[in-house]
Simulated assay, not measured.
Amino acid sequence: MAAPLWLREEAWLRELLGWFLDKLEGPRARAITRRAKPSTVPALFQFHEDTQYRWELIEKLATEHSVFSIVYDRNIAAFDQPYENAQLRLNPDAEDLLRDWLDRPRIDPAQQAWERAVAPHRQRFADNGASLLAARPVAAGYEADALAAAFAAIGDHLEGELTLREIAARCFRGDSKFLDQRQELLLKLHGERAAAILPRPLLLTAWAPPDFTQLLVVENQDSFLRLAAHPPPGFALLYSGGFRASAGRLGSEHTRFAFLPGSDSAAFREQWLSEQLPVSFWGDLDFAGLGILKALRQSLPGLRAWEPGYRPMLALLEQGGGHRPEQAGKSGQTDPAETGCVFCDRTLLPALRRHGRFVDQEAVAPD
């Protein structure tokens, strides 16, 4: 609703309404009220002006716009103005209307506190803290001052000796994962210095017998160790640990391997990621497991589903076995649509869609 034309001409009234907005922006425990007295609303007692008209404007705000409710004082003297000591009680629902009339956008007290907290540290940031002010981080249990100081303290650890998780644990009360999704924010706050953070190595466990000719990537630990105890002939084994091995870091220089006893580690490193080494994957027969297969194919384009592992799982599914997604907290899994593996796309995924059930790989022994 547009402001009444007469409000533009009455500076005293805009000042009065501004006082009520000031009170709304501060801490309060009771309704916001003001008594009409010479000390509080002097414009109503400047009798060289048309004070009756001025009071009529206040009444319009109460009756036509519901800005106030007015409670008159019944004990005023006969010679006093009828509005003297009347109580103006602000209607909280009128806040947005007043802000629009007076062009005073709502101020978030939490944002104000955040701006005050960042201010002492602005010189420590490459962008003077602009990115922190533009998108206030949400962190349960942190007061604004402590959180701003923690982001500033990151600069004390950018000497190229620590990983992101080590820095997070040192700055954010031992929470090593606090910065995992905030790398872009760090680059804005600390600029080129953030590039000195050590990449976190991808740690994978492998078993590589002498003279292996193929590699099998296994999703789950129990199945990996079972196969390592009774290995399929000619296979080296790699434990992927869920999605960890699907990261883009898989083929980077920062990937690290831990080898089980009896492994030919030199031969494994020599053939790792070689296009001549056939690679298969065996994981859970569910959308997430086949999603891992799809993701791994970005680094290992020749990767395919390992049929000796999936065949008995498929048979169990066809016989009515397996669990429904909601029984194992898997309702949120997303169908990967196509993986690029023929056996997966033509056999495994259609079976999952047809039966609406999943099978974890620990349920079977490979053929």
Rank of each mutant, 00 (worst) to 15 (best):
R106Y: 05
D156L: 06
A94G: 05
P92E: 14
F151E: 00
L162V: 00
A146D: 12
W101R: 12
E143T: 11
Q81D: 04
D96C: 07
L132V: 11
A78W: 13
L97Y: 07
G129A: 12
R106D: 02
R136K: 14
I154M: 07
W101P: 03
Q111A: 11
A110E: 11
L147F: 12
L132I: 09
W101K: 15
A146Y: 07
R122C: 03
R165P: 00
R165K: 05
D156T: 01
I76R: 10
R124S: 09
G129E: 10
A139E: 13
G129Y: 09
P82V: 08
V118D: 03
A144D: 15
P92T: 09
A144I: 06
W101Q: 14
E159T: 08
P109N: 02
D96N: 13
G155L: 07
V118A: 10
G155V: 02
I107N: 03
D108Q: 05
T163D: 01
L98I: 08
W101S: 10
Q112M: 06
L162I: 00
G129R: 03
I76C: 01
G160V: 06
L132P: 01
L102Y: 12
Q111P: 00
A94W: 07
P92Y: 05
A126T: 04
A135P: 01
Q123T: 11
A152S: 13
Q81A: 03
L147V: 09
A117I: 14
L98E: 09
L158V: 02
A126F: 03
D103K: 15
A148Y: 09
R116T: 12
R124N: 03
L97H: 13
D100P: 00
R165C: 01
E115V: 04
F151C: 04
P82A: 13
E143D: 08
P120C: 13
L162P: 00
V138D: 07
A150S: 15
R136N: 02
R89G: 07
A153I: 00
A146P: 04
T163I: 04
S131K: 08
D93T: 06
I76N: 04
R99S: 11
D80T: 01
L132H: 08
L88W: 02
L158P: 00
S131M: 07
A113H: 03
I107A: 13
D80E: 06
E159H: 14
E159C: 06
H157E: 01
